[in-house]
């Protein structure tokens, strides 16, 4: 058996291209994530009606929460848990904003990719599939947030929303938001990777959804939860990736709470990152590449 010699042409060299050197790996990851984001933005623009409908769903959720808790505040003589009716509106519209900017879908998409084998080609690219997902979601979130902003502003005036905001709280919130997005993505991805071992994880996904709803401060501000639930929320990661940035942005955190919050968010992100890395490594080993 003899190998055939290569012959001429632009395709004539069997040698790979001259790639960027390894020390520029971080930059190449960023370039690749931005390419994924660009691609997702193109898909989003192409399916703008779908994007608008998603936005409508999110707005409806926020409006329902505001309506319910304004009623509770009114029934309690104008305030509940330190929130006036207008402050509830400010809180839930900020929740909507943070939810959109940190939204992730990896816990839903990854199991599908694993089950159908769509993950296979992604594993054979010199780019981590989760990094690609993160880039895609970043683009989707920015697009959806831009689309939602006019509606949020209108609702802000309709409900006469109030927040005790300052320049410092806004800057702190903006700094914390990317960290919150990373933290939320890591929790989400950790749920998703269980699909490497469990064929059906619908129940786990529902558990995650409801836990997040309660413990993250999405259903109600944390101060309105019973004591044990508040304690649990401060231990679990959900609150730090949503409730904490919202409270920071709405001026409900003092300096000490802000420092603790950033430390908890950073700590949880580190723990989740290590857990995800380990789970991913073991999961890929168990991956059957079935269907593709």
């Amino acid at each position: 058996m003899t190998a055939r010699p290569a012959t001429g042409s632009a395709l004539g060299s069997p040698e790979p291209f001259d790639y960027a050197p390894a020390h520029r790996r971080l930059r190449s990851w960023l370039v690749a994530a931005l390419a994924a984001a660009r691609s997702e933005a193109q898909v989003g623009v192409q399916y703008r009606a779908n994007l608008l409908l998603w936005g409508a769903v999110r707005l409806l959720q926020a409006v329902i929460s505001i309506a319910v808790w304004r009623s509770v505040a009114s029934a309690n003589g104008g305030a509940a848990g330190g929130f006036t009716a207008n402050e509830f509106a400010g809180y839930f519209l900020t929740v909507l904003l943070v939810l959109e900017l940190t939204h992730t879908w990896v816990r839903g998409r990854l199991p599908t990719q694993i089950r159908t084998g769509e993950l296979s080609p992604l594993l054979l690219r010199p780019m981590h599939p989760l990094l690609e997902s993160f880039g895609r979601m970043g683009a989707f979130n920015v697009l959806l947030t831009i689309g939602l902003l006019p509606s949020i502003v209108i609702l802000w005036f309709v409900f006469d929303a109030e927040v005790d905001v300052s320049a410092v709280s806004i800057i702190a919130g903006i700094v914390v938001l990317p960290l919150a997005a990373v933290g939320r993505f890591l929790v989400d991805a950790l749920v998703g990777v269980t699909a490497f071992w469990l064929t059906r994880i619908d129940a786990l996904q529902s558990l995650y959804t409801y836990a997040s709803l309660v413990f993250a401060g999405q259903f109600a501000p944390l101060v309105l939860l019973p004591g044990p639930l508040q304690t649990a929320a401060k231990v679990l990661p959900f609150y730090w990736t949503l409730g904490f940035p919202v409270e920071l942005l709405t001026g409900r955190c003092d300096l000490r709470e802000a420092v603790i919050g950033v430390a908890m968010l950073t700590g949880w992100s580190a723990v989740l990152f290590v857990a995800l890395a380990l789970a991913w490594r073991r999961g890929v080993r168990a991956y059957g590449a079935v269907g593709a």
Partner: peptide, 23 residues
């Protein structure tokens, strides 16, 4: 496999260029 289903292949080719860090 490689192509984004909803986009023209030309967009996927551009994306792949970034993934592989091609000049």
């Amino acid at each position: 496999q490689q192509l984004v289903w909803d986009l023209p292949a030309a967009d996927s080719f551009l994306m792949i260029r970034s993934f592989y860090g091609l000049r």
